[in-house]
Design a protein around this nucleic acid. Sequence first.
DNA 1: CTGTTAGCGCTTTCAG
DNA 2: CTGAAAGCGCTAACAG
Lengths: 341, 341
Amino acid sequence: MKKGHQVTMKEIAKKLGVSVSTISRALKDSPELHPETKRKIVEMAKEMNYQPNLLAQSLRISRTKTLGVIVPEITSHFFASCISGIQDHANKRGYNVMICQSNESIDQEIANIRTLVASQVDALLISLSRETNHYEHLYELYSREIPFVLFDRVQEDIPVSKVTFNDAGGAYQVTHHLLEMGCRNIVFVSGPEDLYISKKRKEGYLKALNEYGIKENSNFIKVTDLTLEGNIEVAKEIAAMKSRPDAVFCMIDPVAVDVLTYWKSIGLKVPEEIALAGFTNNPTSAVVEPPLTTVSQPGYEMGKLAVSHLLDQLDGLASDDPISIVLETTLVPRKSSNRQA
Amino acid sequence: MKKGHQVTMKEIAKKLGVSVSTISRALKDSPELHPETKRKIVEMAKEMNYQPNLLAQSLRISRTKTLGVIVPEITSHFFASCISGIQDHANKRGYNVMICQSNESIDQEIANIRTLVASQVDALLISLSRETNHYEHLYELYSREIPFVLFDRVQEDIPVSKVTFNDAGGAYQVTHHLLEMGCRNIVFVSGPEDLYISKKRKEGYLKALNEYGIKENSNFIKVTDLTLEGNIEVAKEIAAMKSRPDAVFCMIDPVAVDVLTYWKSIGLKVPEEIALAGFTNNPTSAVVEPPLTTVSQPGYEMGKLAVSHLLDQLDGLASDDPISIVLETTLVPRKSSNRQA
DNA sequence: CTGTTAGCGCTTTCAG
DNA sequence: CTGAAAGCGCTAACAG
């Protein structure tokens, strides 16, 4: 199957007996042009259904007005929201977007960067894969002076702008809420410990405990690999603890949902016997029974801020010096943590 | 902020004292080339960290190896899965993907097509917006001989390949299941009636009723505009019917979830007092209480099939004659329809 | 106000 | 086996 022919400036030029440059000028509304000529050209272009070839244009001006986006997983609601925010605001400023997913694989992430760079995107927005534990590919982008920003899953040392949530703050909010609900033995279910969010959320958890004069108890920190099996394993462990904790704070909602589902299956009552909270405010968390207390992270907003800042830098509206944008989260208290009722 | 310089073939050529064409040949492993020269060039290219400029290449060969995808909503789990399937399989065959969302707006859909075409994508995969009720933009693509396929939200008359689910079949499965559960007064909650899926699912619903000798009852067909308010309105209406139906089949899961939530708030018990079923098998449907009976539509698979067929056509591995690929759905019976217990 | 010219980075005849 | 030259569609000096 081959594509049909596309009208070019040359053809309009021939038809009208003028030069290609005149066509080019008319179509970008150059002032130094006879209004009548311009009118004729614009009309003819429309009549012939001319569509500019962005490829040629980009090659010529060496700017594609296209941004590359790399996310770990497009099917995650949170990342889909980010993408949505990026797209809308990129389009609003005349930019297109190419999206890739790394599927949580560093090799795929590197491959994605290669293709996007080869496609000559003007800049990149990247959220790192879970697997990403070395950063040469990012430093290479940096040294090649290809502008990029990191969002959500960031690496702190790279001198580029980053957009993150106040993860520690959010974890503090949840933990503080559980404490206010009267819980004192609060388990934190962490993801792999080298993850940025694992560290930050643990930090907030500990800070809240500390304010209540409770000190860190390593038995109360469980680690899951974030798979269904891993999550259930942790749920089992907690249910079987000799002196059962009165609350559990899971690093992300999906973990909390898996834990909840398991506990329901063994008849452990939430929140009566044990309170539960998550993080992210996935759509799922609102509809489980009981509805899950969580912390909302506005993904659309994050995408919007990330792309706006990046484009400000590209367009010279913002300094090239890297900045860090931190979004605040909001506690969403729901029944799963309501021990007062 | 400006991008750094990228190494070009010209520079490699100068450094090695050969011509650009030789570089080009070496890099695409042309056989008519001295092995030693080739080795040297490949080595130097790697050393200089050469990355081909896909833009220039595409302009030259007038193929971008890029596909355009348009979906109504990237944040919908179903469409995100489709995209994921498309991406994975496009990449596998050396193609890139540009994704756009129409946000259920026909104007946005048209705009998306324009940009993608201007970006010279080799072909398009489109799932129509809810608003799309005229099809000039598609016929124009067709007449301009830009290959495209439609998936999920299709328009039947356009002579291009389409990938859909057996929507009528799925609706039949659900309705049949409800009938087997002993329900005889089954309401169908439809979306806007001009939607393809509204029509098809109603068709399956009626077929199942018919097999049980139940004839169409227009009071038992409710229409929602698919907004939260519309869905709740319908839920209210049904709860208030003088002789209340014993089952409700909602055209898509989100509607069923809204209905369920409302009913829970007024104390109407599912499935004891009324059975409920949805369609799509969103992640949400598994975790609501009670878990929702639904029909699963494998989005990843749909994306995969759509893109594979399209690329087969592009690469001449499949005939250009339009075909229709129909995916079967699977009934997912859950507690919300279990009237036997 | 408009045409001529050069060239973005690459591929591909056509000659040697 | 390799180089020279043309050209993909467009923009942007530079002339006039």
